Amino acid sequence: MKAYEIIDSMIDTLDIFLESDQNESDKENYEYIMNFLKEELEKKSSNIIKYIRNLSLEVEVLSQEKDRLEKLKKQKEKKINNLKKYLVNILLNLEKNKIETEIGNIGIRKSVAVGIDNLEIIPKKYIQKKVELIPDKRTLSELLKQGKNIKGAFLEYKYFLQIR
Rank of each mutant, 00 (worst) to 15 (best):
M1F: 12
K2F: 03
A3W: 04
I6S: 03
D8K: 10
I11A: 14
D12W: 06
L14A: 08
L18F: 14
E19N: 11
E24F: 15
E24G: 13
E31S: 03
E31G: 02
Y32F: 15
N35Y: 05
N35T: 06
F36C: 09
K38W: 04
K38R: 03
E39T: 11
E39A: 05
L41P: 08
K43I: 09
K44D: 11
S45M: 11
S45I: 12
S45D: 13
N47L: 08
I48T: 07
K50D: 04
K50Y: 13
I52T: 09
I52D: 05
N54R: 10
N54P: 10
V61L: 06
S63T: 12
S63Y: 15
K66Y: 08
E70C: 12
K71W: 15
K73M: 07
K73Q: 10
K74T: 04
N81I: 08
N82F: 11
K84H: 14
L87V: 06
N89T: 01
E95T: 01
N97T: 03
G104A: 00
I108H: 02
S111K: 13
G115W: 04
N118S: 10
L119Q: 13
L119G: 07
I122F: 07
P123Q: 03
K124N: 04
K124V: 00
K125E: 15
K125I: 15
Y126M: 05
Y126T: 06
Q128P: 11
K129S: 14
K129R: 06
L133H: 10
L133I: 13
P135E: 08
R138D: 14
S141R: 01
S141K: 02
S141C: 00
L144E: 11
Q146A: 08
Q146P: 02
K148W: 12
K148L: 13
N149Y: 11
G152N: 08
G152F: 14
E156R: 11
Y157R: 09
K158D: 00
F160C: 06
Q162P: 00
Q162H: 03
Q162W: 01
I163V: 04
I163Q: 00
R164W: 00
